[in-house]
Structure formats: structure tokens, C-alpha cells
Computed example of a mutant assay.
Amino acid sequence: MPADGDAPAPAVHFWGDHPATESDYYAAHGAEGEPSYFTTPDEGARRLFTRAWRPRAPARPKALVFMVHGYGNDISWTFQSTAVFLARSGFACFAADLPGHGRSHGLRAFVPDLDAAVADLLAFFRAVRAREEHAGLPCFLFGESMGGAICLLIHLRTPPEEWAGAVLVAPMCRISDRIRPPWPLPEILTFVARFAPTAAIVPTADLIEKSVKVPAKRVIAARNPVRYNGRPRLGTVVELLRATDELAKRLGEVTIPFLVVHGSADEVTDPEVSRALYEAAASKDKTIKIYDGMLHSLLFGELDENIERVRGDILAWLNEKCTLSTSLQRDITVE
């Protein structure tokens, strides 16, 4: 027991102290999984902290879902709630902490080269899908916020047949004019970043306050022991501006089937940008859902009934695509 005046010990898990272990929590929700590390195969040999969540054995998953978290976040706190939901619904999910995030290598929240981060994630995803037990399973991308932008970059850098589809949750696929630094600030930031790329000096609003609607859930989000709470680093901001500018120019090249979900009241990423993606994408199979009054954290920070609604839409979309993929494979086999 803490002495009078001492702060209580922080919770080990986002769900609290019970169940006491991750495996018990997974089992209680009809899933199983484990953490691990992945070492990239290139000359740099960077280590990524990874997690897997699967349907409980002996069930075979319907598909593989490769998940990417957002800026400053990680895969070990509230992000797990969606992965566990999908696992108990029949999908095997895999994710890695981005470089500079969570328990992966690198200076906290420093992402000077998003293309390198994309390459690291892609190496991990391809290593997972190459396993014998995953042969023939459709593969989906799933990204939240900055992770949505990364999913689109992965799609644009890989053969179209590699992915059965993508779920984009409040994606940062272009910096909105509403929040983009006005000219000439981007040019100034780019110049200064050449000399001090790791400097954490870019002013920003409290993302938890702007993202999470339910006050009690803001407290839980803030307790994340590996969440980055500092100001954005110059090099990271400049790289995000560069990468999202690239995406903005290439939205018409997007051909992957996708579902994009966004809250109409999101102040972190702009729902109008998601509408622009939907309108510009060349994808023949595309769906957009804008939820009235919801904020950025659609899958944790909202009222429970709102979360159930968004989860239900995502699950229905994934199940539909799995059915289509199975039918297509059956037709090919018959031919």
C-alpha cells in the first residue's frame, strides 16, 4: 500500500490490474497473442518491437491484418483493444512499434525518413505473411492517423495484388490547410531542421485533449508509460509535411480497395481530406463513413456505443472482402 501522500502505482495495462497478464486478458476476450522483436534484414539491422493477436487455437484465421499505429503512440496500450476485437472476430493481427516509438529502436518520436520506416514495416509484414501457416490468406492493411498515411505509402510502393484492402482510421493522408503551418513557416522549419533535426521545439496542442472525447478515457490514455508526450521534433514535422505532400499529389494513384472512417468533429486530422481521398482515388471498390460529432480517437476515446458502431462497420467491411477474396480464389482454382 502506498504511504499517505504517495501517488498510487501506475497501472501496468490500460485495462487496469486485472487480469494481471496480457495472455489472461486476451483469453478473456477470445484471443491469444504474444510480443516479440523483429530485426530488419538490411545492413542497418534495426530492431522493431512487434505483437501478434490471433483467434484462439485451433481456429484458423480468415485473413491477416497488418496494423500501423499513429504518431507518438505504440502497440502496447489502448491500440491493443482493436487488435483483440479483430482477433476474437477471426482475424490474425500483427503490428510493430514504428522506429522511434514504443519499444522499437530510435530516438523517441524522431522519424526523419518515413520511407525507411515504411521499408522496415514492409520487411516485417512480408516475413509474417511468408509463414507456411499463412499460405493463401488474404492480407489487409490497417492504419490509424499517421498509420493511415503509412498504409497508403506501403500500397503505392508495392504490387497491387499484394493487399486485399486497407482500413484507414482518421488517416493523415494530407496536412489540412486548417492546421498546416502558414507560409513561410514550413520553409523556415525545413531550413532549421537541417541543423537541429532532433530539436523538440514545434508547438502543438494537447493531442489527448483533442482526440479523446470521454474524460475517464483521457486519464487512461495519459497513463501510457511509453507514449511520447513532448513537443514534435523538427525533423519529424518536416518529414511528415514532405510525405503528406507526396500523398496529396498521388491520391489519384490509389487503387487498393479501402474503407476510410473519420469523425466529423476531428481536429487532429481533417475529415475533408478523407473525402478528398475518396473522391480522387482510382479504386473501384471504396467506402467512406463520416461519423457525426465523433473525434479523432474513434476506436478508444469515444463513448462505448460509438466505438461499437465503428468497430461493427470495420468488421462488416473486412468480412465482405474476405468473402469476395475466397470466391475469387475458388473461381481461379476452377478455371
Rank of each mutant, 00 (worst) to 15 (best):
Y25T: 09
Y26E: 10
A27D: 12
A28W: 05
A28M: 09
A28H: 07
H29Y: 13
H29V: 07
H29L: 14
G30L: 01
A31K: 00
A31I: 01
E32L: 06
E32Q: 15
G33P: 03
G33D: 02
G33A: 04
E34R: 13
E34I: 06
E34C: 07
E34V: 08
E34Q: 13
P35F: 14
S36M: 09
S36E: 13
Y37F: 14
T40G: 01
P41N: 03
P41L: 03
P41E: 03
D42K: 01
D42W: 06
D42C: 02
A45L: 08
R46W: 10
R46Y: 11
R47K: 11
F49V: 04
T50E: 00
T50M: 00
R51P: 01
R51Q: 12
A52S: 13
A52G: 07
A52F: 04
P55T: 06
P55G: 04
A57I: 10
A57D: 15
A57W: 10
P58M: 08
P58E: 11
A59G: 09
R60T: 15
R60Y: 08
K62Y: 15
K62A: 14
L64K: 03
L64Y: 06
V65R: 04
V65Y: 03
V65N: 00
F66V: 09
F66G: 08
M67F: 13
V68S: 04
G70I: 07
G70K: 01
